[in-house]
Amino acid sequence: MKPANLAPFLVAPLLVLLALPLAAADIAAPPAPEPGSVSEAEGLDAWARIEAVVSHPRCANCHTGPDNLPMWSIVGEDKTRPHGMNIHAGESRIGAETLACQTCHVTSTAPNDVAHAPPHAGIEWQLAPVEMQWFDKTGPEICAQLKDPERNGGRDGDGLVEHLIHDAEKDGFVPWGFAPGGGREKAPGTFDEHVRDVQLWVAAGQPCPQ
């Protein structure tokens, strides 16, 4: 395939994001703790809760590695397995090379209330960048990755919190993970608790377990 043929689809998500109206929802992060006001032990406690979220299949299933295969967690099954239908997200991570994720996972802020139907969000369905692989990674590996601007989209600690809020403003994947609907298993805790935990972890200096 000519790379140029992918261009419209590769830039489309960015263009759509730029075209979206500003925050429809009134979402704001709570005041962040002062840097240094949270002990390393408290920061590690917060990280343990963050790790439980980011390593949960509801979140990690779309943070897969360079095989570009999304994973599935089926209601009633304990084991995660590759997405059915021979789905490959490709190097584009949005399926542009073959079958676009959006062919089934339409972009919509409507509730996800139908069991077994493909879930959707207010932003284009996609795998996270491969640098952000969580699936099959250990907690310490994910921790090191999340504090590394080379792999986390150039974000400092405050930038990570802003990322969560920005995603929520778009009805994105993060709040969806805590309320996936349709009988799907949710990530542990709530979105607000997750934001607070990230704030605590950042204020503690982003400590990682050994």
Binding site: M1, N5, M85, E97, T98, C104
Partner: peptide
């Protein structure tokens, strides 16, 4: 309709491209 969309994106698909695209 799926095949036409495939050829819009990829004018010379391989068997593997077709299998991946049409599997749904």
């Amino acid at each position: 309709m799926q095949a036409a969309a495939l050829l819009d994106m990829n004018p010379a698909p391989t068997d593997e491209d077709i299998n991946k695209t049409m599997a749904g």
